[in-house]
């Protein structure tokens, strides 16, 4: 009952979109189980693209205060473009999440009575219960919590637990500005945040190891010749991204003030 209602509600945006003249047939094709997975794959891959760019920018922290602040400044001075990007990113995230819940509910309904005993027939996994693919929901929730914290910390700069550095004017007579480098360092080195970030990013790593491969699979981009490459590549991608971000937590403690 509840699941039925949930899928009903989650399908509202699609119903709305399909009313837009010309979009109906495409939206309907995207609304089947396979169609939803295709959209999830596209949004997921787009978010992966964002992660790569985001990590690239953040790694400038290693290049020093000046370079990082220049990057931050350049980014923030994009004005309307930045707003569009932010809205786009938010939509991707919301669509990915909404579809995850919708397909998840569909799957839950597909087995109204569960097994008394259930064992996998696949080989040994690094994770119990069938590998990363069985943990997509859990890691997804953890990532969600982390993203909210992260936005609160650094986008809105409103985390009550963090003592943000005061804006400083670069020279006499200029508007005081936040030293973004210092802000990031402060946020990351707060002990509670360090734990939340670590868990969130670790979950992200797990999510990506299955997610990337799964996205390719859902788009039908899979073949005998490169399936194992895709498997390894996906693992590598997930853990490289995670390691890159996690390293910044350690950096925040190690960097001299």
């Amino acid at each position: 009952m509840f699941l039925n209602a949930l899928t009903r509600i989650l399908s509202l945006p699609a119903v709305g979109l399909s009313r837009i003249p010309g979009l109906g047939p495409l939206v309907r094709a995207c609304s089947t189980s396979v169609g939803q997975k295709i959209v999830m794959a596209i949004t997921g891959l787009s978010l992966c693209g964002f992660l790569v760019v985001h990590l690239g920018g953040n790694l400038l922290l290693y290049a020093g205060e000046e370079k990082f602040n220049a990057y931050a400044h350049a980014l923030h001075s994009q004005g309307a473009l930045l707003k569009v990007a932010e809205v786009g990113l938010f939509s991707l995230f919301a669509a990915h999440l909404g579809l995850a819940v919708s397909t998840g509910a569909m799957s839950r309904m597909a087995r109204s009575q569960s097994y008394a005993m259930k064992e996998s027939k696949q080989g040994i996994f690094a994770l119990p219960a069938g590998g990363a693919s069985s943990w997509m929901g859990v890691t997804g929730v953890l990532i969600g919590i982390f993203v909210i914290t992260h936005l609160l910390d650094l986008r809105l700069k409103m985390n009550p637990l963090v003592k943000y550095p005061a804006p400083v004017a670069a020279a006499e007579g200029m508007t005081p500005e936040l030293n973004e480098f210092e802000v990031v360092r402060t946020v990351l080195s707060s002990p509670i945040n360090a734990v939340v970030y670590f868990i969130g990013i670790f979950a992200l790593g797990i999510h990506l190891t299955h997610g990337l491969r799964s996205a390719f699979h859902s788009l039908g981009l899979n073949g005998r010749r490169w399936d194992s490459l895709l498997k390894c590549g996906s693992l590598l991608f997930g853990w490289v991204i995670a390691a890159g971000f996690i390293s910044l937590i350690f950096w925040s403690f190690a960097v001299p003030r």
Binding site: K37, M106, A110, Q122
Partner: peptide, 10 residues
């Protein structure tokens, strides 16, 4: 009423 595929390979 079948579920959706999560590419779990089970």
């Amino acid at each position: 009423g079948f579920g959706s595929c999560t590419n779990t390979s089970e």
